[in-house]
Computed example of a mutant assay.
Amino acid sequence: MLPPFMRLNEEIYKQFKSKTGQIAVLIDPEKTHELSVLKRIVEKSAFANVDYFFVGGSTVMRKDFQNTIAILKSLTEIPVVMFPGDFQQLSRDADALLYLSLLSGRNPEYLIGQHVKSAKEVLQLNIEVIPTAYILIDGGTQSSVAYVSQTSPIPKNNSSIALNTAIAGILKGNKVLYFDAGSGAKNSVDSSLIKEVKEHLEAVTIVGGGVRTLEQIQELEKVGTNVIVVGNKIEEDIDFLLDVQNYKQTN
């Protein structure tokens, strides 16, 4: 029998599924950990009607990860979702955990090894766990996650591999597809790929990496992306959240 949290608690997953064009702000505690900076991001994110905070990074230490989530939870009611880079990045203060399997790579450590290391702790957190197929797409630069995981992203122009990987992920029981071009990507995931995936699968899709313009957000929403993740752009220009607010108001 599944534990109660896996049978009953699907609040965040249902929210993901409820509509397209939702916005998540990605916070990397290694880059953004000072209270004053987090307060500013939270205030502008609330004004912009952002839907989620995702927290994680490729090399974040447990203490910084947990402190960042604790601060966010003290400042906002916007859901905080763990987007972990390794098995240490866990906190019982978060609202949900994206339980990531890196399906685009062939490194067993990120397919199952990290999960085995953290399994008991995840079970004891008693929070919502969302099985997620994590699929890296080439964003024009070597991303931190590709380097740390020692895997190669799927070539940007090879949609058939990406589509088959996504289908395999759903058939294996994942509930969410997360397509990521990586932190600091030059190019975001093509909206045409998401359109093709949606033609074959009725699955919740999240897209991140290289999202820097409202035009990209609009294109991704148009093809049915449920959650669009913005990270580096906000680190560089926090006032982009004002543009997001205007966009959400008019759509």
Rank of each mutant, 00 (worst) to 15 (best):
E43A: 12
Q89M: 14
A70D: 12
T32F: 02
I130N: 14
G57K: 10
F87M: 06
T68V: 13
V55G: 15
F65A: 03
R62Y: 02
L100T: 09
S91P: 07
R106K: 12
K73F: 10
L100D: 08
L98S: 05
L103R: 03
S104R: 05
Y134M: 00
S104I: 07
S74H: 09
F54K: 01
L111M: 14
K39P: 06
P108L: 11
K19H: 03
K120T: 11
Q15R: 14
S36V: 15
S74Y: 04
I41Q: 08
T20D: 04
V37E: 06
Y99A: 09
L103H: 03
I71N: 07
M82C: 03
I130S: 13
F87Y: 15
L102T: 08
N49M: 01
Q89A: 12
N49T: 00
S36F: 12
L98V: 05
I137C: 06
M61C: 08
E30R: 07
P84I: 12
K17Q: 13
F83Q: 07
V37W: 00
V42N: 02
M82S: 03
Y99W: 15
L102M: 14
A70M: 09
V55T: 14
F87P: 06
Q114G: 09
F16N: 09
F87V: 05
G56R: 07
Q114L: 11
P79F: 01
V116A: 15
G57T: 10
P79C: 04
D51E: 02
V60F: 02
V81I: 15
H115K: 15
K14F: 05
V60H: 01
E30P: 04
S18E: 10
L102S: 07
L38Q: 02
G21V: 03
S58N: 04
S101T: 15
N126S: 15
I23Y: 00
T32E: 08
R62N: 11
S58H: 06
F65T: 05
Q66W: 08
K14E: 15
V50A: 13
P29G: 06
D86G: 14
P84Y: 13
K31F: 11
L90W: 02
T32S: 11
D64Q: 10
S74A: 14
K73W: 11
D95H: 07
E109H: 10
P84G: 12
D93E: 15
P79N: 02
E34N: 13
V81S: 00
A133Y: 14
S104F: 11
L123I: 03
L136G: 04
